[in-house]
Design a protein around this nucleic acid. Structure first.
Lengths: 234, 234
DNA sequence: CGCGCAATTGAGCGGGCTCAAAGCCCGTGG
DNA sequence: CCACGGGCTTTGAGCCCGCTCAATTGCGCG
């Protein structure tokens, strides 16, 4: 799970990955920051901020899907996470972002000044707590992804990814999981190649667990999907 | 599990791998918590806390080495991180820990009440900032490890691990990197098998980059080691 | 010296990668 | 309305890195 500010349900965007939602964020603690915040639009594949850019701002996704990307010298790419409406990103950076953020689809974000956020956190224990909780959730998610990357097979990663996306509410009106990102993005998120992701999806399709379309996946057998994406001991 | 209980900070006996934490500025904000804190000893392989245990306490390593461990249903294991003197762990959990912590060597830790920590953070912006910075650093480290696990080859992971350990000060009097943990621990940290870790170390030895001993590794060619553990674009 | 455990080395296999070729979707223009 | 083209996805064939299984070595300790 990622850093979702969940105090009230997000007003669902009417269209698939479209429709600008210009309402104010749904977190009381952020309200004092609204005055100096800005709403921004991005087109598909636009860069929202760059790796190693001074971390002046942080962002809240209003609509669309954002990916965070880290690059290594030789071009290898890691997609850290996919951010959906209600998710925050860039709040927990140090002086500089250590990853870039790019629009997967058309995106609308609300941009906040991190300096203002920090100083507000000094005076609002409410906000400070929210930020701590957010970090804790991010860290938990990061640990889960470490297991995914370090210890799971290709098909487990793919099934687990579908489960995660469905639980995070990336679901359309017909109950299908929305996958607005390319197979390349998914592969770079799961530490696999495009081909392996395709084969994994095809296999899940072949055995009747899911139905695959271009930008969506329909779940045919929830139980089978869940057990294909093994969980942590609890 | 032999958790000897003392009420005063202990100066542990200096043995191998028993570098003692001498106090660092970034935890100065913890001072008000010292009154109700406790110093604990653990033997090799003792469990400090369990996965899914209520996260009542957090810990500071005074001496020795601690590993955090996450298990999956079928026994697959992921070692999240190795903690050295001066490192904190368990501070950023939610209601329950989602990983266990175990002593790699003989260990002395200082245990703090998380509830007290949280309430102190409400009144001390100093501490609140420290905690936020701590989380930010943890997240950065987690992202770097994601690249390691998702996108690096076995030999890159091994070299990168050695570089990391040397930079974190796990170095003995002769400049050798101290590796108090078993090969199994290293393997489960890097998403590899024991055998692959061994072969990787042997190969680095064969080409003259390092010299391998039981619990230490001496660096013979720093440049070669650095370039074997590829960095992130900067 | 001999036992037990961890580390190392060897041989062979297989999952996921690489390289390559279709296939499909959708926009654009005739 | 269809033909064409480009980009992404899917499928196929073969290879290699890292895993599995197994044997050997090295080291600490009674």
């Amino acid at each position: 799970m990622s850093a979702t500010l969940a105090t009230e349900p997000v007003a669902p965007s009417p269209g698939p990955h479209a429709a600008t939602w210009t309402g104010s964020p749904h977190v009381a603690a952020f309200r004092p920051l609204e005055r100096q915040a800005t709403t921004l639009d991005f087109e598909r594949n636009d860069e929202i901020f760059a790796q190693d850019e001074p971390a002046q701002y942080c962002y809240l996704v209003l609509s669309g899907c954002v990916r965070t990307v880290t690059l290594i010298e030789d071009g290898r790419r890691q997609v850290g996470e996919f951010l959906l409406p209600g998710d925050l990103f860039g709040c927990d950076s140090l002086a500089e972002h250590d990853f870039s953020a790019e629009a997967v689809t058309q995106v609308v974000v609300r941009r906040y000044c991190r300096r203002a956020l920090e100083s507000l956190a000094d005076s609002s224990r409410e906000l400070a707590r929210t930020l701590r909780e957010l970090s804790a959730n991010q860290l938990r998610a990061a640990r889960e992804r470490m297991i995914m990357l370090g210890r799971k097979t290709a098909s487990e990663r793919i099934a687990g990814f579908l489960v995660e996306m469905s639980e995070r509410g990336a679901v359309d009106a017909h109950g299908r999981i929305e996958l607005p990102m390319s197979r390349t993005d998914v592969a770079d998120h799961l530490g696999l190649t495009i081909e392996t992701v395709c084969r994994g999806l095809s296999e899940l399709h072949r055995v009747g667990t899911i139905a695959v379309n271009r930008g969506t996946v329909a779940i045919r057998n929830r139980r089978a999907l869940d057990s294909a994406g093994i969980k942590i001991v609890h």
